[in-house]
Design a protein around this nucleic acid. Sequence first.
DNA 1: CGATATCTGTAGCGAACACTACAGATATGG
DNA 2: CCATATCTGTAGTGTTCGCTACAGATATCG
Lengths: 212, 212
Amino acid sequence: MAERGRPRGFDRTEALERAMRLFWTKTYEGTSLAELTEAMGINAPSLYAAFGSKEGLFREALAHYSDRAGGGFWKELDEIPDARTAVEHLLLATAAAFSDPADPPGCLIVLGAQHGCDDGDAVHRELRARRRENLDQLANRLRRAVTEGELPADFDAAGAAAFYLSVQTGMSVLARDGARREALEAVARGAMLGWDRWVAGGAAVKSSLRSS
Amino acid sequence: MAERGRPRGFDRTEALERAMRLFWTKTYEGTSLAELTEAMGINAPSLYAAFGSKEGLFREALAHYSDRAGGGFWKELDEIPDARTAVEHLLLATAAAFSDPADPPGCLIVLGAQHGCDDGDAVHRELRARRRENLDQLANRLRRAVTEGELPADFDAAGAAAFYLSVQTGMSVLARDGARREALEAVARGAMLGWDRWVAGGAAVKSSLRSS
DNA sequence: CGATATCTGTAGCGAACACTACAGATATGG
DNA sequence: CCATATCTGTAGTGTTCGCTACAGATATCG
């Protein structure tokens, strides 16, 4: 059954793309509806008919971001067979993406909204959930490497995941503050310098702690 | 000369402290004047007489934060004689502070405002400048260790500073997302695992890159 | 063609925002 | 005691916010 009524006068996907880039540049709360409608080339009622609300539009923009811009290296994390190479690639690809002049610097999922504390707000909960997803994906990738025998049984997958995600998250802010690609790559390479000692296991971690 | 006119009816420092904690919890843009006046126990005209504007109040709150809450470990970075211990202490003290239940999690300087791109806004420029200050202080501390002979002449102080700051910055977001103290300490310890290879110098970094 | 359904543009809604005019209150300086 | 100066509380200001009522336009269905 074909659609009835007057057909939509704009390309929904392109409008969504423009909204995503605006949210990415100015954050959720920092982007007004007037700015959105202007960038999308439509009027407010068209926006509400197509996306429901500012929040609905943001959530769709977020999904679009995960599928397109921010999704690449996270998918590859699972595809690259060697865990060490996979993590290194994640960080180096992040360094390249966050400093790509064609896109706003940093990650929409990290920088896309205010970082309040209480936040029962749905947008903040969704962003938090997606960051949590990244943490889990990283930990699961490392655990997989343990079961595959690449990493030792006592490998601290949860700790290492938190560490590597912390590095990647910090890179978002550094990029927003103007860090160049070489600087971000130095961060990525620096994070990999400790890999062997992560692999060496809990004893090495503890001795490093004792030496302080 | 003593002050003329009706004396102020509230403690300016305590009001500032309360404002700081509110900004710390809800960010600059996320905190309304109504919330501020309520938390500070004063009316809007008193706030404006004492602090000039919301922006002026935030800047004073920021200075208060640097002097009091966020300032401790950054001062100690320069006081601890051994650079390795100094950096390790910075990260471990950060882990403890960011997960202290008595304070809002994470750092006001990292989380205190929206992370927009263009931002000619004065508040954002000041936060960015303070983050830049942290980067410079860390790099200078490492360079000092080079001149003192603790670190080799070819030590990549700028790269290492970017790396360790990236870790610390990421910890702010992890803390905001609910990371416990042990998780943040794992991040801190993980960051120190690569220290020796940072010290081993550019050749080690490059070989690590080649191995990917 | 008429009925129906959806989209578009104008124009404006109530609420929240940062901020302030003004009058009364309360101190000091002479 | 009077003049002056500063603070406090009330009650607003104009602007911007996200959002929508409504009428006209444009499509399909029968």
